[in-house]
Design a protein around this nucleic acid. Structure first.
Lengths: 165, 165
DNA sequence: TTATACTTTCAATATTATTTGGAAGTTCAA
DNA sequence: TTGAACTTCCAAATAATATTGAAAGTATAA
């Protein structure tokens, strides 16, 4: 396969994957682009390569920085800002896990804590309590796993799982 | 908190969570509803409870069955079809993991295999190969973990991780 | 301080995803 | 075979989300 074709496909694929992972398509594409770049890119570079507007690039770069997946780089002698991506896939996955925990798991835990103590002793209310308590337990376990994962800075996680097989 | 209020909040929350997990909002809400129901529900029941159209209920019930998260139940003497949800959260998470692996990870693995063998020896092409090979390695590790998880029918996974802490 | 080179914001617009509701299809008891 | 009681399909409508582009903002060199 030709390089340009491969690169194109890779960026498309990463965009699609991103959108099913809570990261919007363009954001994921910009990240993909920065991942394979040999040097930091400017907003201009990204606009050209992905054929998107300046505003869009700016918004998504900020989102990437927010998620801890990209950084500004200042190049001396250049007025422009440049950007580079975190390239270590383990770090990326830890960052994404952290963000998603904060955005999704934490609010759910809070809610489940509240509602699993619902009033009432009808069959319906009892079933409700049972289900929400199960969910709460699972959510807490998930939280522990994610905390563990976030703390590890090696590929510790996979190494151990590998040995268990 | 009152039961009806708690139930409402729970269904809303599950819907929101679902949509960031590749499950559309209504599909997740129907699942949430079935989870806390004491008996199987008909399409009609779901329409009323969630205030959505028949077509929508039908489509999403089929999707839930497709994902292995709900089942038809035939009640003797009743013409209508009834539905119940898988209620065991471990089984649910395994099912979701399986489906997402199939829909997302498998295509990515296929693509990465192809493109990490891209032609060319320029700095750019080399960086590209390096990045895509890293991604491929990570994707394969993820696949192993998911396979392991899917095979286990106990909460095996969490037990072991618990001990490692 | 001013002109310039850049970045950021945001209302308007375009795109994508979801939902509706009616029409067509299916099943079954009589 | 009919028709009642359902289920399924799908084109059109609606809602949610992402993108654009122009205007406003900011920093820098001279």
């Amino acid at each position: 396969m030709k390089f340009t074709e491969a690169k194109e496909k890779y960026i498309q694929a990463w965009g699609t994957l991103g959108s099913s992972w809570g990261i919007n398509r363009t954001m994921a594409q910009i990240h993909a682009l920065l991942m394979v770049a040999t040097t930091p890119l400017s907003a201009e570079d990204i606009m050209e390569e992905l054929k998107i507007s300046r505003g869009n690039v700016n918004m998504n770069l900020r989102a990437l920085m927010d998620w801890g997946l990209a950084d500004k780089v200042l190049i001396s002698g250049e007025r422009k800002e440049f950007f580079k991506a975190e390239k270590d896939i383990m770090n990326i996955s830890v960052q994404v896990a952290k963000e998603r925990k904060k955005r999704e798991l934490d609010p759910i835990l809070k809610l489940l804590n509240e509602i699993s103590e619902v009033e009432g002793e009808t069959a319906e209310a009892k079933e409700f309590k049972k289900v929400t308590k199960d969910l709460l337990k699972f959510a807490k376990q998930t939280e522990s796993v994610l905390d563990l994962y976030a703390q590890s800075n090696q590929n510790w996680f996979f190494k151990i799982l590998g040995k268990l097989r």
